[in-house]
C-alpha cells in the first residue's frame, strides 16, 4: 500500500505551524508518529493535500515537573511515558497503560498527542488520563486555552480541537496522597489488539475506618468516547470497603456505559465484561487476591 502524493511542510517553529493551519485549514493534517494518520491515508479514509510535520518541534517534547503538576508535551511517545522517572505514584498509572499499547515498535512511534487527537474510544492513554483529572492545553495564533480532557473528547474521532489549533501538552494535577490504581485492558488476544473494554481505577482509602475516600473510574471502548463511570464512583465513595459493595458498583458501571456492537464484540459482551473488569480492577488496586488472568 502506497500513499497518494501530498505536500510535506516542515515548519521550524510553533508560529509557523499556526500560520500553516490558518492558511490551509482542513486541507492540512498534522503529522506526529503517523501510526494512526498514515494508516488512514493508506486506506484512503482521508486524503489530506498537505502534512505539517510536528516532529522536529522541541516545544512539544518532554515531560516537565512543576511544584504540583506534570506537563507532558504532545510529542511524548509511549516509550517515553514508560521510561520517565517523573511518572511515579498515581501518575504511574499512565506509564502502566502505555506498556499495553500495540508493540514496542508502535510505542516508539506513537505519541500521547496523537492518541488523544485521533480520539478513538479505545485510546489506551485516555481512561488513565481521565481518572488523573488531565487537562489539555490547546494552542493557536490566538494563544493557549486549557480544557478538561473529558470535554476535549467529544465523539469517535472527534475532539474540541479547532481547525487552527494543535494540542500542545497534557497537564496532570498531583494525584491524591496514597492513590491506589490499576489499568486493565481486555483485547481479543494478549498483544497487538485494541481494547474491547478497558478500565482505569484510582482510589484512596481510609485504613482506620476501612472506607473508600475518593473513587475514580474510567472506561474505554464502551461509549462514543472514553468515559468516567460516575454513578459507580458515587456508590463507593465514602462507603465501607467490601466485596459486595464492589460487585454492586461494577454492575452500576455496566449499566451506565453505552457499548456498541461491532466487528470485534457485541454490546452485550462488552457490558458483561465491564462488570467483570471493574470488579477486578477495584479489587486489584486494593491488593485483594484475584485470579490470574493474563490481562
Amino acid at each position: 500500500m502506497r500513499l497518494k502524493p501530498f505536500e510535506f511542510l516542515n515548519p521550524s517553529s510553533l508560529e509557523d505551524v499556526f500560520e500553516l493551519l490558518v492558511r490551509y485549514g482542513n486541507e492540512a493534517k498534522c503529522l506526529a508518529g503517523g501510526t494512526d494518520l498514515l494508516v488512514q491515508m493508506k486506506q484512503r479514509r482521508i486524503l489530506p493535500k498537505r502534512l505539517i510535520n510536528l516532529l522536529p518541534l522541541s516545544e512539544l517534547k518532554g515531560i516537565h515537573k512543576a511544584e504540583d503538576s506534570l506537563r507532558i508535551g504532545a510529542l511524548t511517545r509511549h516509550v517515553d511515558l514508560e521510561r520517565s522517572a517523573f511518572l511515579e505514584k498515581g501518575w504511574n498509572l499512565l506509564a502502566l497503560a502505555a506498556t499495553k499499547i500495540g508493540s514496542p515498535q508502535i510505542r516508539h512511534l506513537g505519541t500521547i498527542g496523537g492518541n488523544l487527537c485521533n480520539a478513538s474510544p479505545s485510546a489506551d492513554t485516555a481512561p488513565p488520563l481521565l481518572v488523573l483529572h488531565a487537562t489539555v492545553c490547546l494552542s493557536s495564533l490566538k494563544g493557549n486555552r486549557q480544557i478538561p480532557l473529558e470535554a476535549f473528547l467529544t465523539g469517535p474521532g472527534q475532539t474540541g480541537l479547532r481547525e487552527d489549533e494543535i494540542l500542545k501538552e497534557v497537564i496532570l494535577p498531583k494525584p491524591p496522597e496514597g492513590s491506589l490504581f490499576t489499568y486493565l485492558k481486555l483485547g481479543r488476544r494478549k498483544s497487538m489488539d485494541l481494547a474491547l473494554v478497558s478500565v482505569a481505577v484510582l482510589v484512596t482509602i481510609n485504613p482506620e475506618r476501612k472506607t473508600f475516600e475518593q473513587v475514580r473510574l474510567a472506561l474505554g471502548s464502551v461509549a462514543p468516547t472514553p468515559i468516567r463511570a460516575r454513578a459507580a464512583e458515587k456508590q463507593l465513595g465514602g462507603n465501607l470497603i467490601g466485596e459486595e459493595a464492589i460487585r454492586e458498583a461494577a454492575e452500576t458501571a455496566a449499566q451506565e456505559c453505552q457499548p456498541m456492537t461491532d466487528l470485534r464484540a457485541t454490546a452485550e459482551y462488552r457490558r458483561e465484561m465491564v462488570k467483570v473488569l471493574v470488579e477486578r480492577a477495584v479489587k486489584q488496586s486494593l491488593g485483594f487476591p484475584i485470579p490470574p488472568t493474563g490481562i
Binding site: 510535506f8 503529522l31 503517523g34 501510526t35 494508516v39 510535520n53 516509550v79 514496542p104 515498535q105 512511534l109
Partner: peptide, 13 residues
C-alpha cells in the same frame, strides 16, 4: 538505535 516500522514512516520525516 530504536525499533520502528518502516512501512509507516515517511522517509522525509
Amino acid at each position: 538505535g530504536e525499533p520502528i516500522l518502516s512501512c509507516m514512516t515517511l522517509a522525509v520525516a
